[in-house]
Design a protein around this nucleic acid. Structure first.
Lengths: 178, 178
DNA sequence: TCCAACTATGCAACCAGTTGCAAAACTGTA
DNA sequence: TACAGTTTTGCAACTGGTTGCATAGTTGGA
């Protein structure tokens, strides 16, 4: 049940409404744990029922239905318990590699344009990560522990995208010969 | 619906029973597209109903229920159609990074032993991939197109594991200071 | 001969993630 | 004022992956 814990983390960083949470999520934790707004609303409902969070009408909401969610002590404890658990390794799970293996047995199907497209998408993501890095993690005298960890997490994304770019370059070489 | 196509690929490489398929899967396509035996049996049933594969009692089965599955022309065509489609990028989705971010907001929880454990598991996987590489892709004069692609796919796994090892080394440095 | 382990298949229930749709209020503009 | 677009929330149905369990035959050893 990772999504609940991802939401607890995000709400501890900053209490907010489901909608704001969903948008903030896309730009932070969403880089390595994606969720749709549907999932988020459903999960917030469950978490409130479980007593991990509570909600109140947003003070600036006027007559809208907007509600702000806050983490309760029980939620905080649950998050600590969970964070200290051992987690299974995240295995590589890539549908495109299945397609490539299909091509190996029934091909050639000319995967080159698709390889190039995918390489470009990875390069685009990498560029976006580098932009975040330049903006949020400029070299400075004394970064906090939290900032050091956030930077580290971002670097996982950078490493991941760079790895794919290297690999796609090799793939283009191998499959470009057909 | 990737699993069906992964199974079609595997059955084209070699017709076999659900059980054998499941075991072979673990050692080939399973490296980048995991599936339990339950999923595989269910999917084989669907594919047979869809006319993509057919089955016959295994000739060497004796009185067991063992059945061999074979890809039909419709299955082959479906696989070609699917393999040529554009696939969405596989995004990084790593529960441990969520835990790390949780640690950043409520910690420190001493993630060092878990970091070390995970690094070791990645190193173990990398070692296994290198063993496969040495066994199946020894440098030779004229590798077939299929072998070149299989090697390329394996290299994606190698790249992936190496990337994580580099990252965990850095993570141990950053979190080791606490 | 009996039992444990392995081969081989499958049902049922559940959980998480996805998709399509829509309600209800607000905001800006033609 | 009417309409399009955005904010905010949510229902319902579906798909795919997970877990626990069951069945039935085979094999090898105590």
């Amino acid at each position: 049940m990772s999504l609940a814990h991802a939401l607890l983390t995000s709400l501890l960083e900053q209490p907010s409404s489901g909608y704001d949470l969903a948008r903030r999520f896309d730009k932070s934790i969403g880089h390595f744990w994606q969720a749709t707004h549907q999932q988020i609303y459903r999960e917030l409902g469950r978490m409130e029922k479980a007593g991990w969070i509570r909600s109140e009408p947003d003070p600036e909401a006027g007559r809208t239905r907007k509600r702000t969610y806050l983490v309760l002590p029980a939620g905080r404890e649950e998050l600590m318990r969970w964070a200290a658990e051992a987690a299974p390794l995240t295995e590589l799970r890539d549908e495109f590699l299945v397609r490539l293996r299909a091509d190996a047995v029934i091909g050639p199907l000319d995967m080159v344009p698709e390889l190039a497209r995918r390489r470009a998408l990875h390069a685009e993501k990498l560029r976006a990560y580098h932009a975040i890095e330049a903006r949020d993690f400029a070299p400075e005298a004394e970064p906090t522990r939290q900032r050091r960890i956030h930077h580290l997490i971002l670097k996982a994304g950078i490493q991941y995208e760079q790895g794919w770019i290297v690999w796609y370059d090799e793939a283009l070489q191998v499959l470009g010969k057909d």
